[in-house]
Design a protein around this nucleic acid. Structure first.
Lengths: 186, 186
DNA sequence: CATGTTGGTCAACGCTTGTTGGCAACGTTA
DNA sequence: TAACGTTGCCAACAAGCGTTGACCAACATG
C-alpha cells in the first residue's frame, strides 16, 4: 500500500550519497552538508526526510546480509562458503564498509554491527559447532577473522591484502573459519 | 644532553590524556579542549608544545612494539609466541587501541599503523616462511587475524571476545598464525 | 477557480572546533 | 636589582557543524 511519492528519487539519492560518505569518511567527518551537496539538494531536506544525523545513518545502514542456506550445505565446506559469502557481500556495495568505519567511533554503529553479526552468524554456529554452549565464542572467533580481513583489505588497505584475489583469500581463511566452527576446543 | 625542562610534567600529562582520548574516542571526537581539561591545563598549551592536533597525535602514537627474539625461538611455536606478545602489548597501554581507532578514520593514523606492522612483522615473516617472495602476503594474513581480534576485543567489544582469557585466545589463534606463516601455499 | 499538500531553497540560529596573540607570574642569570 | 626566557591563563577569532523556520513553486483536489 506504499504509494509512490514524488520525492522518492531524492530520498534514494540522499541515501546513496550518505552510504558513500559514511563508508569513506566515517561518522563525524561525513557531514550532512557534504552528503546533501553530493545528492544535489539542500541540507535541510536531509533533516526533513530522516530527522537527524543518527536517523540518516540508521536508514543508510539498513542491511540484509542474506545468509546462504545453512542446513543444506555440506558441513565440511562451511568455512569456505562463509568466507566467500562475506567477501561477496562486502564487495557488492559500501554498506558494510560504512558500518565498520562508523562502528569504530560511534556507539550506535558498533551496536548495529554487533547485532548483524550475532543475528547472521549465531544460527550458523549453533547448528554446526560440536558443543552448542560455546557457539558464541566460536562466532566471535569467526567474526575476528572475517572482520580482520575486511579491516585490512577495505579500510586500512594494506597493499598485500588488497592485491590478493578472492579465491586466494578463501583458500587461506576458509580452513581457519572451518576450524573455529567445527574443531574440538583446544 | 637533553636538559630537564620545568614543563616536562605538563608535556607528559598532555600526552597521557591524549592517548586516553584518542583510544576511547577516535581522532575527530578527541578534542584538544577535552584533552587539555583532562591534563588540567589550558588548550593553548597543547598548541605551544605540539604545534597542532596532527602533531599531538604523532607524538602520542610514538610506539615501540619491541618484537621478541625471532631467530632464537623454536620455529614451531612462533604462532603462539606472536599472538601472546601482541596481546600483552595491546593490554599494557592504550596506544595500539588509539592507533587502531584513529587509523580507521584518519589517513595519517592508517599510515602509521601500516608502517608499524610492516616494520615489526616483516622481518619475522621473511625469516620464517618457506618462500620469501610471498612474505608480504603472509604478513598481511597474520595482520588480518591479529588486528581482527584486537578490533572485536578492544574496540567493538563483542562480549564473547572480551570474556575469553588470553590463554584461550592464544590456543585458538596461535595455530592460525602458525599456518599463515609456515604452511605451504594452498 | 480556490485550496491544501508536497518538494524544495534560503538564511539564519547557537554551538563547538582548532588556533592565535596578549599578558601576568615565576625562576634564572647577570 | 634588572633583564630575560619560560610557563601558564584568558579572551577572542574564523570556520564549520547540526538544526530550524520562513518562504516559494508546483501540483492535486474540491
Amino acid at each position: 500500500m506504499t504509494t509512490v511519492r514524488r520525492s522518492d528519487a531524492t530520498r534514494a539519492a540522499i541515501l546513496e550519497a550518505a552510504r558513500e560518505r559514511f563508508a569513506s569518511d566515517g561518522y563525524e567527518r561525513a557531514t550532512i552538508r557534504a552528503i546533501a551537496r553530493d545528492a544535489g539538494i539542500d541540507p535541510s531536506m536531509v533533516m526533513r526526510y530522516y530527522g537527524n544525523k543518527e536517523g540518516l545513518f540508521a536508514a543508510a545502514s539498513e542491511v540484509e546480509i542474506g545468509l546462504p542456506e545453512l542446513g543444506a550445505l555440506p558441513a565440511r565446506h562451511i568455512g569456505a562458503v562463509l568466507v566467500t559469502h562475506f567477501l561477496e557481500r562486502w564487495e557488492r556495495d559500501e554498506v558494510l564498509t560504512a558500518m565498520l568505519r562508523v562502528g569504530v567511533t560511534n556507539e550506535a554503529g558498533a551496536a548495529r554491527m554487533q547485532a548483524i553479526f550475532a543475528q547472521q552468524l549465531g544460527p550458523v554456529t549453533r547448528g554446526v559447532c560440536p558443543d552448542p554452549e560455546d557457539a558464541p565464542r566460536r562466532a566471535a572467533l569467526v567474526a575476528s577473522q572475517i572482520l580482520g580481513m575486511a579491516l585490512t583489505r577495505y579500510v586500512l588497505r594494506l597493499p598485500p591484502a588488497v592485491a590478493m584475489s578472492t579465491e586466494e583469500i578463501v583458500a587461506w581463511l576458509g580452513p581457519t573459519v572451518q576450524r573455529y566452527l567445527t574443531a574440538e576446543a583446544p
